[in-house]
Design a protein around this nucleic acid. Structure first.
Ligand SMILES: [Mn+2]
Ligand SMILES: [Mn+2]
Ligand SMILES: [Zn+2]
Ligand SMILES: [Zn+2]
Lengths: 141, 141
DNA sequence: ATCTTCTTTAGAATTGTTCTAAACTGTTGA
DNA sequence: TCAACAGTTTAGAACAATTCTAAAGAAGAT
């Protein structure tokens, strides 16, 4: 709901990792900084690996995947399923929805309090609702 | 909206293929029958290939993929993106939404007229909305 | 029948992701 | 301070889903 402070210190990130019982290694700090230092992001593993590499920090792709999954398990990231060919990770873990630009593969947040879904039938007996995802697919013109 | 007749004849299927400028080959007819002969289905390429093979008809996996994509282009199938690891094809092309059972990978239709999404912001200028997908993720207990 | 075009297919290739096991690093506490 | 242990990283292999290639086969038109 409330936007995070624009600047996040290395110490902040350290805390966050410790809180998740993750050792603050060089790799995790670099990735955490790329992910969380400036506002929210929607990014794929490959893209994040590219950024780290371009930034001159050696992080293997395996570590990027490990880290993204650990962060997701820790609840500081979430996955968004919009396209069968790539997995997006979202640094915004508040309830919210997405525009998906099919031409470019870009995701745009829709604040959680702007959209309402009504008329949901009961889930099948023996199941409970984990989440309601809304993806608004848009394209040029 | 209206449910299709329970029985679909081979001739029906032929027509449908011709209407899409697709030659009614043995393979396409077999796949069309598996897909459309009895109510609606949500199925992956691999699963459909398995069914065809088990039914004793030789259809290559490449042909299954080709056919599913051709049917999708023709508007008699649509794809559903719920899980990054597999692509589901849906024989129900009317406006409707889904429950997704995360434990089993099963999809369950939610009639289009039961759910309403309100409060959608305008799409970014220069884009138009193609579709609004709602996925209700559910799991056991 | 013949020709043309469309279709099928085996197998290779590609993509995105996960696994393995060995080397390395952070943390702890003697 | 430093060994010892547990947690972490990584290259590379493996895997799963899907697409591509190019050659052989089947359909429709004449
Ligand atoms: Mn994949
Ligand atoms: Mn895939
Ligand atoms: Zn988001
Ligand atoms: Zn459906």
């Amino acid at each position: 709901m409330v936007e995070k402070a624009a600047y996040v210190t290395a110490d902040d990130l350290c805390q966050r990792l410790r809180a998740a019982s993750l050792r603050p290694t060089r790799q995790r700090l670099v990735l955490a900084e790329l992910l969380f230092a400036r506002g929210h992001r929607h990014i794929t593993a490959e893209a994040l690996h590219g950024e780290a590499t371009r930034a001159g920090i050696g992080v293997s792709l395996a570590t990027v995947y490990n880290t993204l999954h650990q962060f997701t398990a820790a609840g500081i990231l979430r996955q968004v399923a919009v396209d069968a060919t790539r997995t997006y990770f979202d640094t915004n873990v508040d309830a919210h929805q997405h525009f998906y630009v099919e031409d470019t593969g870009m995701l745009i947040d829709i604040p959680g309090d702007s959209i309402a879904v009504s008329g949901l039938p009961h889930p099948p007996r023996g199941t409970r609702i984990d989440r309601v995802d809304v993806v608004v697919r848009i394209s040029k013109a």
